[in-house]
């Protein structure tokens, strides 16, 4: 974010190049492992989830340029709040719906 104009400035292509390389690697590995099918299902799911979370951070850092120094504090707080709420809402919903499924076959 540029202080004088309020409009973000991206001087070099470097973060995007790092980002795309990392993202491609973090995509190719889970795709390959699933295609290969050698690992057991639970392990594969864990791997997919972990790589997805890491890739999200890669996108946030290298494409959206979110960091603790230049990003305005309110944007970071909004992101953190959204993340917490999403965990509560999705986690709570899955808990409720799977609990209902076990009890009511719904």
């Amino acid at each position: 974010m540029d202080a004088s104009s309020g409009i973000p400035i991206e001087r070099t292509a470097r973060p995007y190049l790092i980002g795309i390389v990392l993202a491609l690697i973090l995509t190719a590995i889970p795709f390959w492992l699933v295609y290969d099918g050698a690992l057991p299902r639970e392990t594969l799911l864990m791997v997919i989830a972990t790589f997805a979370v890491v890739q999200i951070f890669v996108h946030l850092r290298f494409f959206l340029h979110i960091d603790f120094s230049t990003t305005p504090r309110e944007n970071l707080i909004a992101l953190a709040f959204a993340a917490v709420l999403i965990c509560i809402m999705v986690g709570g919903s899955l808990w409720i719906m799977f609990d209902l499924y076990h009890r009511m076959m719904v």
Partner: peptide, 13 residues
């Protein structure tokens, strides 16, 4: 889609 994100980044630069 990943490439398109990168090309948009190049547009930003």
């Amino acid at each position: 889609l990943l490439l398109s994100s990168t090309t948009f980044g190049f547009a930003a630069v």
